[in-house]
């Protein structure tokens, strides 16, 4: 019972965090500088998220060489081609290939 209640409250919290600005700011007009600022949210939070995925959940363990290499490949291929199929194929090839070679 406690657990169900906890999950329900967490569900509300989860929704609230995703909805809060979308609903509260739905009738506000954004000044130009705020719109500019919002453009940085995507790059900043996604970059932080990518790095978080590479770090072990317990912290401490740094990403391995082939993980850095795979990520760098993804960035370069995305920059050059803007094609995510190429990004996926080449970056995973580098990641698996180097991972295999380096053990």
């Amino acid at each position: 019972m406690t657990i169900l209640l906890t999950i329900l409250i967490m569900g509300l919290g989860s929704y609230a965090m995703r909805a809060v600005f979308i609903l509260l700011l739905s009738n506000h007009s954004f000044p130009p500088w705020a719109l500019k600022a919002l453009e940085y949210v995507g790059p900043a939070v996604m970059a932080a998220l990518v790095m978080t995925m590479l770090l072990s959940p317990e912290g401490g363990q740094a990403p391995r060489v082939y993980e850095w290499a795979g990520l760098a490949t993804a960035a370069v291929v995305a920059l050059l081609t803007r094609n995510h199929i190429y990004v996926l194929t080449l970056a995973m090839a580098v990641y698996w290939g180097l991972g295999y070679l380096l053990g």
């Binding site: 996604m46 990520l71 993804a74 960035a75 995305a78 995510h84 996926l88 970056a91 995973m92």
Partner: peptide
């Protein structure tokens, strides 16, 4: 590992 890879692509 494909998830951070694809996110990196989307980030770029």
């Amino acid at each position: 590992f494909a998830t951070p890879v694809l996110f990196m692509g989307l980030l770029v």
